[in-house]
Amino acid sequence: MADVYRNLHRRCWSVREGGRVVDHVAEIALSGVTLRASEAARLRCLRTGSRDVHAWARGLPLVGVPRPGGAVRFPYSLDRPGFRLSDGSILTAAAGAWFEQDGSAWCLDPHVECTSCVP
Rank of each mutant, 00 (worst) to 15 (best):
A2Y: 01
D3N: 15
V4S: 02
R6A: 13
H9R: 09
R10D: 14
R11K: 14
C12K: 14
C12W: 04
W13A: 01
S14Y: 09
V15K: 05
E17S: 12
E17W: 09
G19H: 14
G19Q: 08
R20E: 15
V22F: 01
V22L: 02
H24G: 12
A26E: 14
A26Q: 08
I28L: 08
L30Y: 00
S31A: 07
G32T: 00
G32Y: 04
V33L: 00
T34I: 04
T34V: 06
L35W: 01
L35D: 00
L35V: 01
R36L: 05
A37G: 04
A37L: 04
S38L: 05
S38K: 06
E39Q: 12
A40T: 08
A41C: 03
A41E: 12
R42W: 01
R44M: 10
R44G: 10
L46V: 13
R47D: 03
T48M: 03
R51L: 13
R51S: 08
D52G: 12
D52C: 13
V53A: 07
H54C: 09
H54M: 06
H54G: 07
H54S: 03
H54L: 10
W56T: 03
W56H: 11
A57R: 05
A57G: 05
A57I: 11
R58Y: 06
R58I: 02
L60W: 08
P61Y: 07
P61T: 04
L62Y: 01
V63K: 14
V63R: 10
G64Q: 09
G64P: 07
V65K: 12
V65C: 10
P66T: 07
G69R: 04
G70V: 02
G70N: 02
A71G: 06
V72L: 15
V72Y: 13
R73F: 01
R73D: 09
R73L: 10
R73C: 12
F74W: 12
P75H: 11
Y76V: 05
S77H: 14
D79W: 09
P81D: 12
G82H: 02
F83V: 04
L85M: 13
L85I: 08
S86D: 15
S86P: 04
S86F: 07
S86G: 15
S86I: 10
S86A: 15
S89F: 12
T92A: 14
A93Q: 00
A93E: 01
A94S: 11
A94F: 03
A95Y: 00
E100C: 14
Q101L: 08
D102S: 10
S104E: 10
W106F: 04
W106G: 15
W106T: 14
P110G: 11
V112K: 13
V112R: 10
E113S: 11
C114K: 15
C114A: 15
S116P: 05
V118M: 13
P119E: 11
